Simulated assay, not measured.
Amino acid sequence: MTPAPNQHLGWYQARKLPHYDAPHVLQFITFRLADALPITKLRQIEAELRMLPAAEQEIQRRRKVEYWLDQGLGCCALARPELARVFRQGLLLHHGRRYRLMAWCIMPNHVHVLIECRYSLARIVQSWKSYSARWAVEHNERLGLGLQGGRVWMRGYWDRYIRDERHLAAAVHYIHSNPVTAGLVKRAEDWQWSSAGRELDLL
């Protein structure tokens, strides 16, 4: 069931992922393209996790997924400036109304966003995906995006609510540093598709 735009669900679980949806909470959100992690790689990750204590598995799962996302697997359609620009437009479209956009980074095969929620988090993420997916499918063949079967985004998303100022600073640093960590640029502000060193209202 899709929540109403102003309906906040609190703690809930979807597709085996825990989510926290509440008004005015700061959320660090990550989601990826449908082919960013091949099924063989996901199975490898799960096999490695089974050797760990249960309490460590979720933390290590996220670390391993983040590592492999930064290796640039899949079609990396977001590396095309045309699609990255459309996704950025979608992010900025409801900034200041449905959410306050605090930091963001568009990587070749995944996206990181930090927002203060005002609408339902699930509806916000759905709107970003829908806005960009329609355009991507329409222009897939012309631009050679490499999208298969009309599917653009992997279902679901990861979210972490920000606990305190230290956590906030760490989240912003992670988001802005991701292109550097992935070896795409030497300085965070050199990556065109992020908020690093940019005023959001001027983009």
Rank of each mutant, 00 (worst) to 15 (best):
V86K: 09
T2A: 15
Q60H: 09
N6W: 13
V172W: 00
Y67N: 04
D35N: 10
A77Y: 02
S127I: 10
F31S: 09
W135M: 11
E165M: 09
G183D: 01
R151W: 02
D190S: 01
V113G: 10
W191A: 03
D201N: 07
E141Q: 14
Q44N: 02
L69W: 04
H110C: 10
H110L: 10
R88N: 07
N140I: 12
R142V: 15
I175A: 02
L121N: 11
G74V: 07
E58F: 02
H110Y: 12
Y131M: 14
V111K: 08
A188G: 00
A196W: 01
Y131T: 11
I29H: 09
H112Y: 12
Q27G: 05
C105M: 07
A103H: 03
H95F: 05
R198D: 03
D164Y: 08
A133W: 06
R160W: 03
L147A: 05
A47S: 13
N140W: 07
L200F: 01
I115A: 07
N109S: 10
E66N: 14
Q7F: 13
R163N: 02
A77M: 05
E116G: 09
L33V: 03
Q57P: 02
W68L: 12
A47T: 12
R166G: 15
V65F: 02
I39A: 12
N6M: 13
H110S: 10
I45D: 05
L69E: 08
H94K: 11
P53K: 04
P3N: 11
W191R: 02
A4H: 15
D164E: 08
V137W: 13
R123K: 15
R163V: 03
A103D: 06
M107K: 01
K41N: 01
M107D: 03
E116S: 13
Y20E: 10
Q13T: 15
A79T: 07
G74E: 08
R50K: 04
G183W: 03
A188M: 00
E141H: 09
S127V: 09
N178Y: 06
I39G: 02
Q192H: 06
Y131E: 14
